[in-house]
């Protein structure tokens, strides 16, 4: 078991003929991901690393049963490409690009909600269920199949923590990069619910950062979970953030700081690591005791 993606996930790569699209298609294939088709408008009929390229996502879905899409398209074209994937029936859409306009991201998330699709990103490295499937751009070498579910807002910081979990021999059930942008498709709670229900997951690592209220909201849900959760929150040393006028302050109402997040998580029984490399050790203690 794993969450969101597994060896049955059939992936279409939008923007497959581009530099990044082509490069990461080869790495995903190397990892064992079932990349069944690519899409690049104007370039249908070609092949990239043996993967057939089509004009539309609909063809990829109809001819190859693609049910997930990963977008390697520049930020200004992300909204259109994501809508196309959702309309064509992909139930999972992974948006790698950073700098996607905020209003575009909100529109994508709203459309996905209407159609019951899940959006990972924007500004994400993607998702990996080790040994089964990787959709996105993280290095193949850091993963190892195992018992820890990892959910993160930031990218490279989770590579750091995932690698430590792998090296500690624990391994991961699924690693989800929700994306670093302010509006992304998933919330911590969406992912935590799935980990709680997933048989392969025995503990969860949550990698958060300052800003927004996602960690505080996650803490409320964690109180209801049976599985142990360990967290790391980045941004302890950041100077008081640049606030977005009064409306931002009114929404956050004192939440959003490092102290607020750690307090909320601790109150929910989460052990918060002082250093990123301690996450794996804390997980080992939890799993050893379980």
């Amino acid at each position: 078991m794993a969450i969101l993606v597994d060896d049955k996930t059939r992936v279409v790569v939008q923007g497959i003929t581009g530099h990044q699209g082509s490069f990461h298609t080869s790495l995903m294939l190397e990892y064992g991901t079932r990349v069944v088709a690519g899409v690049s408008p104007g370039k249908g009929g070609q092949e990239v690393h043996g993967v057939p390229v089509y004009e539309t996502v609909q063809e990829a879905v109809d001819k190859h049963g693609a049910n997930a899409s990963v977008l390697f398209v520049p930020a200004p074209f992300v909204k259109d490409a994501a809508f196309e994937a959702i309309e064509a029936g992909c139930s999972l859409v992974v948006v790698i690009a950073e700098h996607v306009p905020l209003h575009d991201a909100a529109a994508i998330v709203a459309f996905a909600r209407q159609r019951g699709a899940i959006v990972i990103g924007p500004n994400t490295y993607g998702i990996c269920s080790p040994g089964k499937s990787k959709i996105g751009i993280p290095p193949n070498s850091i993963f190892r199949p195992g018992a820890v579910g990892v959910v993160a807002r930031s990218g490279t910081l989770s590579y750091e923590i995932v690698q430590a979990i792998s090296q500690a021999g624990l391994g991961e059930s699924t690693v989800v990069g929700m994306g670093g942008d302010r509006v992304v498709g998933l919330t911590f709670i969406d992912v935590l619910k799935r980990f709680e229900a997933d048989e392969a997951t025995r503990a969860v690592a949550l990698v958060g950062e300052i800003g927004g209220t996602a960690e505080e909201e996650a803490a409320e849900f964690i109180k209801t979970m049976s599985k142990p959760v360990v967290a790391y929150v980045a941004g302890r040393s950041a100077p008081p953030g640049k606030r977005m006028g009064h409306a931002g302050a009114i929404i956050e109402r004192g939440r959003g700081t490092y102290e607020s997040k750690v307090a909320a998580l601790t109150a929910a029984g989460v052990q918060v690591a002082d250093f990123p490399w301690q996450v794996a050790e804390l997980l080992r203690q939890k799993l050893g005791a379980a």
């Binding site: 990218g155 490279t156 910081l157 980045a234 302890r236 250093f275």
Partner: peptide, 17 residues
């Protein structure tokens, strides 16, 4: 100098600690 906002923040945190 680090790569990625999260790891850059974490780097500053670790130095400060």
């Amino acid at each position: 100098m680090a790569n990625g906002a999260g790891i850059t923040m974490a780097t500053l945190d670790v130095l400060q600690r």
